[in-house]
């Protein structure tokens, strides 16, 4: 039996006494692409932050590969990574931004890995590698941030509105990169988006959320 990457059991999250998320049970499996759909405030981003172990739930349990994981920087954060809607780039070059996660892991052969990740997201290495963070457009920032996460070969890649600030071509590149992460790296993916056609195009299954609850499940392939 395949072990889920992340399991949520009776998880709730509250801010200032108001419950914003309530999930009875959810498993994220390796190699699966799970889409999250729903209006603003439906709990998509909260769910992603919980699965990314960035915040602890108010109640319930979140397991990473069968074991409880801490929100303190640790092992789970080396396997699970989150791309937010407006990602922050370090005040460094594109190369240094993408290489950062590899460096903190003490990896070798960094230039070749960075180059490959840049190509995956459609950024020509010779053209972009030496560019500074302030020399990029919003869409280019998004793609650099995605490359910085793909290069880590995560077990689970979480994306919050990854195409919100992108044009059609860039959205297609993000889709291809997401599929690459699943097909070539074997990563599981959870992605939240308002773009239903993009979400259906990329996901195996779409969860419909409203008022912090999962109100529907759409199996796509």
């Amino acid at each position: 039996m395949i072990q889920p990457l992340v399991s949520l059991k009776n998880v709730t999250q509250s801010y200032s006494g108001r419950t914003v998320l309530s999930v009875d049970a959810l498993d994220v499996m390796p190699g699966a692409i799970l889409g999250l759909a729903g209006p603003n405030g439906s709990g998509k981003s909260t769910m992603l932050r919980l699965i990314a172990f960035l915040e602890a739930p108010a109640s319930g349990e979140i397991l990473f590969r069968g074991r409880p994981a801490s929100i303190r920087p640790g092992a789970a954060h080396r396997d699970v990574t989150l791309l937010v809607q407006e990602p922050y780039l370090l005040k460094r070059t594109v190369f240094a931004n993408i290489a950062y996660g590899l460096k903190v892991r003490g990896k070798n052969d960094i230039p070749a890995k960075v180059r490959r990740a840049m190509e995956l997201v459609g950024l020509a290495p010779d053209q972009f590698a030496r560019r500074q963070w302030f020399e990029l457009s919003g869409g280019e920032c998004q793609r650099v941030a995605l490359a910085a996460r793909l290069v880590l070969k995560p077990r689970l890649l979480l994306m919050d509105e990854p195409t919100a600030s992108l044009d059609e071509k860039s959205s297609r590149l993000v889709r291809e990169a997401a599929l690459f992460a699943r097909n070539e790296l074997g990563a599981g993916l959870v992605t939240a988006s308002h773009d239903m056609s993009w979400l259906r195009d990329v996901s195996d299954c779409v969860l419909h959320m409203d008022g912090g609850r999962i109100v529907g499940r759409e199996q796509l392939s």
């Binding site: 960035l54 699970v80 990602p87 950062y100 903190v104």
Partner: peptide, 24 residues
């Protein structure tokens, strides 16, 4: 304010987060 979250999601340890914050 997004810096700490970014560093955590890139897998930095607490010591690496402190150093990267000074560097930023």
């Amino acid at each position: 304010k997004r810096l700490p979250m970014t560093l955590i999601t890139l897998g930095a340890s607490r010591r690496q987060i402190l150093w990267a914050t000074v560097t930023e």
